[in-house]
Design a binder for these strands. Structure first.
Length: 503
RNA sequence: GGGGUGUUAGUUAAGCUGGUUAUAACGCCGGCCUGUCACGCCGGAGGCCACGGGUUCGAGUCCCGUACACCCCGCCA
């Protein structure tokens, strides 16, 4: 009776002053609280709007199996023992990816599903082991067609659930720019504090006179120097900058070199000040547009570490300086509070340092840009592809691609990844065979419904938009799952545990 | 696998540099109050200070380990 009303009958105190652990243990009581009631009502409406919008756009809602064959790559799967095939296992689907492509082969031109997915990876604030996606796939489309559908859907959600009109089309940014300016592929565009690239500046000044930077006198792939400028207005104390260093170290940094800019551009309070050449210092100040009183934070070394450290420092500073709230959206009724962004044109392949070969950055079935196919053999890192992520306020809320439907190009991609024909057939045979029967050009996307609800409602945690969420260790404190099973059940499945609890 | 924060009464928390009987609020129990509604007043019960070691004359407080919760890195669409 109350599930269509804005004000539920049990208006339990809004204030949360109970430990999360306790709340989860008595989740059914926690769910009586008005904020959670309203959140779940909004989520219900999001489901309804999604179905209505996609139905109007001629999408068919089709189901796919949860119990599937394990395929390598991507997320770790949950395994389910197959009683009728002793010794064998199903995997719980990490996404309907292959099946939705097969719908395209089968001639269903527009498919969607609001579907549970399962991934056996560690949890985060915005990650649960089972979660819900709005999954869709379309035939005879390019990237722009997928964007148009998603923008229609997302703006409908914000309009009909929040009453906010988000302008279309959403802005786009190339992956390369996102990494360069923000250090990750999900930039929060609500504030500045962009990273400043210094690798070439340092190389041009032959290491800038700084002993720690001698290895940067020449540019080495995968090794970079960057800085982040904290404006003078922040007026950080020594204790506060020390805190920044602690955070950086927590992200894997060796340290956090700093420099405070003096009246004439000189550097103080800095381990670099003694040795840096005046020319290099001026060039860095210019690159960072540093003014007296500003504080420069430096990171150098392995590109991925530099990016992780600076991307997280940027977020910390954004919150610390009050540029964005701790969580949620400062003014949810204003369209400007919602910074949607398409991140496009990422590389198809990335180099795996451990396995010493190129691997798919996402999956091997993404269509490369036609003009970069030529680099597949000669310069694999240069191959860009039709892969796209939808980002909102620093959270990735969806990702998809235009699929590779041409078997000839597919072969080249496998070759670039060092996957033999036999191996490919063994691992992905049914999809490759299906594509050989003739597949239309197709592509799609999956939107994280939990994250959409999390952001739309301004929730503090993904757990607040999931009725019965799991803890960081993947347990359910209410039902005490996962639990022990009867030995007889294991015998039926021909399973024995080798686990020995610590003494 | 790694880093960080936390764990004190039923609940939420305070307990600084180790020092007799570990505090408060709400809740609970008893008494009083016939117009209250976050009632008020008086009295009371309730704690292996998460668990296990260690340092010390002495540990809620310091050290080590474990468990649980949360945040992050790794991992992950």
């Amino acid at each position: 009776i109350f599930n269509r009303s804005e004000t539920p009958p049990f208006l339990i105190e809004d204030k949360i002053d109970t430990a999360e652990e306790k709340r989860l243990h008595y989740r059914y009581l926690d769910l009586r609280r008005a904020p959670l009631q309203q959140t779940l009502m909004k989520r219900s409406r999001m489901n309804a709007v999604t179905r209505r919008t996609l139905e109007a756009l001629k999408f068919l809602e089709l189901e796919t199996p949860f119990l599937v064959k394990y395929t390598p790559g991507g997320a770790r799967n949950f395994l389910v023992p197959a009683r009728l095939s002793p010794g064998k296992f199903y995997a719980l689907a990490e996404s309907p990816q292959l099946f939705k492509q097969l719908f395209m082969v089968a001639g269903f031109e527009r498919y969607f599903q609001i579907v549970k997915c399962f991934r056996d990876e560690d949890l985060r604030l915005d990650r649960q082991p089972e979660f819900t996606q709005i999954d869709l796939e379309m035939s005879f489309v390019g990237q722009d067609d997928v964007f148009a559908v998603v923008e229609e859907l997302v703006t409908a959600l914000w309009r009909e659930v929040l009453g906010v009109h988000i302008p279309k089309p959403f802005p786009r940014m190339r992956y390369e720019q996102s990494m360069r300016e923000y250090g990750n592929d999900k930039p929060d565009l609500r504030f500045g504090l962009k990273h400043v690239e210094l690798t070439t500046v340092v190389a041009e000044h032959n290491g800038a006179g700084v002993p720690m930077w001698q290895s940067f006198a020449t540019v080495t792939p995968g090794q970079i120097v960057k800085t982040l400028k904290v404006p003078a207005s922040a007026n950080f104390s020594r204790t506060e900058t020390d805190k920044l260093e602690e955070i950086a170290k927590g992200m894997g940094a060796r340290g956090l070199a700093r420099a405070k800019i003096g009246e004439n551009g000189e550097w103080t309070q800095s381990p670099l000040a003694k040795t840096i050449t005046a020319e290099a210092r001026a060039a860095i100040n210019a690159a960072a547009e540093a003014k007296p009183g500003d504080l420069l934070l430096f990171q150098f070394g392995k590109e991925s570490t530099v990016h992780t450290v600076l991307a997280n420092l940027r977020l910390y500073l954004g919150k610390r300086l009050g540029l964005i709230p701790e969580y949620g959206t400062s003014d949810p009724k204003q369209a400007e509070s919602w910074r949607f962004l398409w991140v496009v044109d990422p590389p198809l392949l990335e180099y795996d340092d451990e396995r010493k070969r190129w691997v798919a950055a996402h999956h091997a079935f993404t269509r490369p840009h036609d003009e970069s196919i030529q680099y597949l053999e000669t310069d694999p890192g240069r191959v860009l592809c039709y892969r796209y992520d939808l980002v909102l306020n620093g959270f990735e809320i969806g990702g998809g691609s235009i699929r590779l439907h041409d078997p000839a190009v597919q072969e080249k991609v496998f070759a670039a990844m060092g996957i033999s024909k036999e191996e490919a057939e063994q691992k992905f045979g049914f999809l490759l065979q299906a594509l050989r029967f003739g597949a239309p050009p197709h592509g799609g996307i999956a939107l994280g419904m939990d994250r959409l609800a999390f952001l739309l409602t301004g929730a503090e945690s993904l757990r607040d938009v999931i009725p019965f969420p799991k803890t960081q260790k993947g347990t359910d404190l209410m039902t005490d799952a996962p639990g022990d099973v009867d030995p007889q059940q294991l015998r039926e499945l021909h399973i024995a545990s080798t686990y020995k609890p610590p003494a």
